[in-house]
């Protein structure tokens, strides 16, 4: 691997957002710290989404105290897959996906089999804050497993693919499909090795794909051509994402949307500190788009108008 360098002036010219710029100029300015719990606590996000009538994966229940860990079986749906996640987890840490289970044997997407004791340990770890931000005591949330849409067959390996949409002051800016790989252990996090496929804001079609910040054309496990990826229900996804701004008031927001075979697009979670790799996946910097939005951001537009503006600005070829 040769070391390649680029001058800061080039990055600036291309409008590429850096980590410090994100933290100081966008998160620091537009994300009020008081609002963080709304997105950092997935239970709160869920409750809020319910109020706004935004679809989310079905909640099976949650465990808040170590003494309840024994009762873990109450939350496990008969003959169905499920997901256990820390309500305040970050970066996909502590999310346990169980595809199916039988006679106390729980199968992970990787094929690894866990027993009930291991499941309990995971929940108990979650409660003691192992996966949560700052090691705070946490709650383990049980959700129904999403049956993902057939449109994604072969695009994702052992995991639920989701669409990450960056919402800036209520306007969709960039979108990307996050596809899990064997390296990412079925998780949709790019820094763990998931593939990010940039999705065109106007069409919902893939633009470009990256793994570990480097471009790829085919999925490393399934060898499927990533450029053929097309996200169904695209309008609905943009709507969910844009409304997440109305729901939270956070100006720089990442909305993760999953596509369920039966229920369609659902809000999986929100992120107040979405990463920067989405730029690489989209072959474009974000800053020019932010500037285009800053011109109109003060107008009292509803989400439909905002999406229309984004489509007009960024939806062309």
């Amino acid at each position: 691997m040769t070391l390649e360098w680029v001058r800061p002036s080039v990055l600036r010219k291309l409008g590429i957002l850096g980590m410090n710029g994100r933290n100081v100029d966008y998160i620091g300015r537009y994300n009020d710290r008081r609002l963080y719990p709304l997105v950092d606590d997935k239970l709160q996000t869920k409750k809020m989404a319910l109020q706004y009538e935004i679809k989310t994966p079905d909640l099976l229940g949650y465990i808040a105290f170590q003494s309840e860990v024994k009762k873990i079986e109450e939350f496990i749906p008969e003959g169905e897959g499920f997901v256990i996640k820390p309500a305040q987890g970050s970066g996909g840490k502590g999310i346990l996906v169980i595809l199916s289970h039988e006679n106390g044997k729980f199968v992970k997407p990787s094929g690894e089999v866990l027993d009930l004791a291991e499941l309990r340990r995971h929940v108990s770890n979650t409660l003691s804050g192992l996966y949560s931000l700052g090691g705070r005591d946490d709650v383990a949330v049980f959700e129904k497993l999403i049956e993902f849409d057939n449109a994604f067959d072969g695009f994702s390996y052992e995991g639920v693919p989701d669409v990450r949409v960056i919402i800036y002051r209520g306007f969709p800016v960039l979108a990307m499909m996050r596809l899990s790989t064997s390296t990412s252990d079925g998780k949709a996090n790019l820094h763990q090795g998931a593939v990010g496929a940039g999705i065109h804001i106007g069409t919902g079609k893939a633009i470009n794909a990256v793994q570990f910040d480097r471009p790829i054309t085919h999925h490393p496990d399934t060898d499927k051509d990533l450029r053929t990826l097309e996200v169904p229900h695209w309008d609905e996804i943009l709507e969910i994402a844009a409304r997440a701004y109305d729901m939270t008031g956070l100006g720089y927001l990442g909305a993760d949307v999953v596509l369920d075979k039966k229920r369609g697009p659902m809000l999986l979670e929100l992120n107040a500190r979405p990463g920067l790799a989405i730029q690489i996946a989209n072959n474009t910097g974000m800053l020019q788009r932010f500037e285009a939005i800053d011109k109109v951001a003060n107008k009292p537009w509803d989400y439909k108008k905002r999406i229309a503006y984004s489509l007009e600005q960024f939806g062309g070829e």
Binding site: L3, W5, P215
Partner: peptide, 17 residues
């Protein structure tokens, strides 16, 4: 400081080019 980090000059290099 909201400028780029040294590591980003490497991270975004091939992408930017």
């Amino acid at each position: 400081y909201s400028g780029y980090r040294l590591s980003e000059l490497y991270r975004f290099a091939s992408f930017a080019k």
